[in-house]
Simulated assay, not measured.
Amino acid sequence: MQQFQVPQGHFSLQRYPVDANPSLRAWDAADELILKHVDEQLTHPDPGIWIYNDSFGALSVALNNYSVQAISDSYLAHRSIDNNYCDNHLVTDSLTVKSSIETLEGTPDIVLIKVPKTLALLEDQLCRLRPFLTAQTQVIGAAMVRHIHSSTLSLFERIIGPTKTSLATKKARLIFSTPDMEIKPSKSPYPNSYTLEGTKHQIINHANVFSRQKLDIGTRLFLQHLPVSATAQSIIDLGCGNGIVGLIASERNPSAQLKFIDESYMAVASAKQNFENAFNGQHKATFVVDNCLDKTDSDSADLILNNPPFHQQQAIGDHIALQMFRQSHRVLRQKGELWVIGNRHLGYHKRLKQIFGNCTRVASNSKFVILKTTKL
């Protein structure tokens, strides 16, 4: 548990899921900067505050004395906020936590936006936010300097209104955007779609889905080698994204029950729509927003298909992949298989051998490798 000292108070915070690396904090300098600004400039006696992309709850916890609506596409962020409120013995009566695709309500006095990694997600969030703003609403963005680009500021300028930035402090910067009520609210360009190559499937993608415009090369290789199995009656697409892998697995194994899992609400919504469009209720599937396989029963799956991420927010590492591999071992039935696609340089075969005791290469190219391991 790390100690977070800001003008609003002293709080204990931790990332979710808890990581063994103590150098990874549950906040950054941009969180500190925006909270300092709010403390110095706050004039409204009881402001309604909307907070976007509060990765681990630092902003929501620090501003717990106000009416807070926290909006994020990340299940892990939602859990972080809940856990850190609980750890600090805070009352949640004035806290509302919503996903990026839920309907917004009310009129905020202050909007705090941690600039997300994905520019498309920022565009979608600003478009959804715009109709709820008044001329008096304060819209303040925050990010580390390296994550603020001219394209970032252009979105604020085009969708919200006149935009300027603060001076950099500890490599962080604020964005101030004044609502221009003459700007007509624009509809978000998301979700968008494309036709999956070699098929008639129209693939729908919400803004925070990886590879929204076309099939990425790693998934293309994975699709070419997905197994057909008479014994695989329960298949999980773990880290499903838009659900293409599970969709094609269901097409090749029509009697199987599919389960799509991702920590992104937009990813799971995309996967659900794509599956329903493809099979119109003729194939069986469930859709779960979760931290990897936390909610999945042990010894319940015959086949798990996995393209693990190698980063959480801006932090790069293999801790999420390792969690997926370890939980897959728990969830698979005896003789069940885990198939993994990943960049060759990540060395997943070593980790899989440590956990499962075996690992076989199914296929590879110059950049990616498909690995298969069996629960003995």
Rank of each mutant, 00 (worst) to 15 (best):
228 V>Y: 11
47 P>W: 08
235 I>F: 00
359 C>W: 07
301 A>D: 00
20 A>N: 14
349 H>Y: 10
196 L>R: 11
320 I>W: 02
100 S>A: 10
291 N>G: 03
138 Q>E: 12
326 R>L: 08
170 K>N: 13
173 R>P: 05
216 D>P: 01
40 E>F: 10
271 A>R: 04
309 P>T: 06
36 K>A: 13
345 H>Y: 12
100 S>R: 00
309 P>A: 06
222 F>M: 01
133 L>V: 03
179 P>A: 08
309 P>K: 07
36 K>E: 15
19 D>W: 14
205 N>D: 03
128 R>A: 05
252 R>E: 10
314 Q>L: 14
271 A>P: 04
106 G>I: 08
247 L>E: 01
354 Q>H: 09
321 A>G: 09
284 K>Q: 14
239 G>R: 02
59 L>I: 06
3 Q>V: 15
207 A>L: 06
345 H>G: 06
112 L>R: 05
112 L>I: 10
69 Q>H: 09
343 N>F: 07
217 I>T: 12
236 I>L: 02
27 W>P: 04
236 I>P: 00
176 F>N: 02
208 N>P: 11
291 N>P: 02
220 R>S: 12
227 P>M: 12
156 F>A: 01
326 R>K: 10
185 P>M: 09
182 E>H: 15
202 Q>H: 13
10 H>W: 13
303 L>I: 05
15 R>W: 03
34 I>P: 04
210 F>R: 09
75 Y>T: 01
87 D>Y: 14
340 V>N: 07
78 H>Y: 06
307 N>W: 10
1 M>R: 14
228 V>H: 14
359 C>H: 08
196 L>D: 13
184 K>R: 13
19 D>R: 15
84 N>V: 10
171 K>L: 03
349 H>C: 06
336 G>A: 00
250 S>N: 13
154 S>L: 04
50 W>D: 04
302 D>W: 02
322 L>V: 11
323 Q>I: 07
146 R>M: 09
41 Q>R: 14
134 T>S: 07
160 I>E: 00
156 F>R: 00
190 Y>V: 01
160 I>M: 00
376 L>P: 13
354 Q>L: 10
151 S>H: 10
253 N>D: 06
348 Y>A: 08
22 P>H: 09
101 I>T: 11
343 N>P: 11
40 E>C: 12
189 P>Q: 04
149 H>I: 04
214 K>H: 12
348 Y>W: 03
82 D>V: 15
163 T>G: 00
88 N>T: 11
23 S>T: 15
61 V>L: 04
194 Y>L: 09
352 L>K: 13
232 A>K: 01
311 H>N: 11
2 Q>A: 12
115 V>H: 00
310 F>P: 14
336 G>H: 02
304 I>V: 08
110 I>R: 02
158 R>N: 02
221 L>F: 03
45 P>I: 10
122 L>M: 06
139 V>T: 00
158 R>D: 00
247 L>C: 05
180 D>P: 03
319 H>A: 15
364 S>T: 11
27 W>V: 06
159 I>M: 00
239 G>L: 03
14 Q>T: 12
329 H>P: 01
334 Q>P: 05
